[in-house]
Design a protein around this nucleic acid. Sequence first.
RNA 1: GGAGAGAUGGCUGAGUGGUCAAAAGCGCUCGCCUCGAAAGCGAGUGAGCCGUUACCGGCUCCGUGAGUUCGAAUCUCACUCUCUCCGCCA
Length: 423
Amino acid sequence: MLDIRLVRSEPELVRDGLRRRGHGEEALDELLSLDIARRKVIAEVEELKRRRNEVSMEIARIHKAKGDASSLIAEMREEGEKISALDKEQSAMDERQRVLLLNIPNIPQKDLPVGKSDKDNVEERKIGTVRTFDFEPKAHWDIGTKLDILDFERAGKITGARFVIYKGLGARLERALITYMLELHVDKHGYKEVFPPFIVNRDSMVGTGQLPKFAEDMFKLEGLDYFLVPTAEVPVTNMYRGEILDEAALPISHCAYTACFRAEAGAAGRDTRGLIRQHEFDKVELVKFTKPEESYLELEKLTSDAEDVLKGLGLPYRVVTLCTGDIGFSSAKTYDIEVWMPSYGRYVEISSCSNFESYQARRMDIKYRPQNGKAEHVHTLNGSGTAVGRCLAAVLENFQNEDGSVTVPEVLRKYMGGTEKIS
RNA sequence: GGAGAGAUGGCUGAGUGGUCAAAAGCGCUCGCCUCGAAAGCGAGUGAGCCGUUACCGGCUCCGUGAGUUCGAAUCUCACUCUCUCCGCCA
């Protein structure tokens, strides 16, 4: 969430951020008027409490001297009622302020391209050569079904639409990709691997910004206030919720494999075939905690680390900077990495790398203590490193052969018992 | 699932109704000492909020939330989490 002091001192900066996003300003207006009223109540109740504290000391002194303080006690009984009435008023205002702040998105970084949708995103670089096929390339769902390594039909039977069973070398390929990605980030890029719970509580979902606004996108467990993780970002970023981190330990870099669960509400009819939009998919995630002044440098590194996954596999991709209208709710700046998908005839998102600045850290209250300074909020970042299902789809499509077989990328063979070709 | 113990500042850990933001130790910062360092000695060192914003004044916070009281770290109730033992179990 935003710092209420920033909202108070520079409301136009916040308003400008909302406008660039194309976001409504009602919450900001309410927040500004509430802030004034709330501070008035605080001043009032604190004055009464100051007086009560004074008198309580006086009563203690009188009792110690074996005197009679009954008139003071009677007086304070009445004061106490006023105080608790004002306390109630204040906590209602506190709660309202919290709700408003939780529902105002982050301010986009000032240099972001202004725009309404993904059409206004800006391409940064294009890496690798898109293959020209001398036959008609097939879509990954056809390739995978024909090779009997993907089974959408039986997954529909045991669960429902938007689920899949990986079989034989398909399962092996999924596992190889996960291992390849984790080992790359741990051994080459210096991330520390964690394996977090796939179920988290409400505070964690609020901490990273999935709640309260996006509840309909999440799977909630019945009868419990627990949720299936939509991304490893949630458990991993929340590891340090409420903590003050050691400055010397920063930046902290974690990578994690988890399954990810998304209700995909509102996505009916989109990407209904294949692995692109599933309710459950695997992902290797990168998460960083940094000092404020280092976060944008770390965003470049994190994005480059994710790109290395695709470079190693030999998949063509491009990197785009998301415009103000397309970045996520909590993000200040986001790069998307898009892999070339022959069946779509275009690049498809496979990773999203974001700097949240202090927006999540303030929600989660994650700080560090600078040398000789007061504790302040860290910056948090994360990015997919990368989405495994989409990566597998890209491998099948980009490395397919005319006879329906698929050539396994060199870097994956050691995880697949030396298999060079799936046929 | 059953029984018990516990949750206090960056860390360890005292504190069972008022003079407690809270002993002591560790850590950290500064100073003395030293050629320098260590040790030793001395001083300082929690967070949030409100007002002023130079200094400072005030309020709140001892797992979370309610309650009792003129007054709660301390008493009552509920909840969460951690640890120990028993049971069950991959």
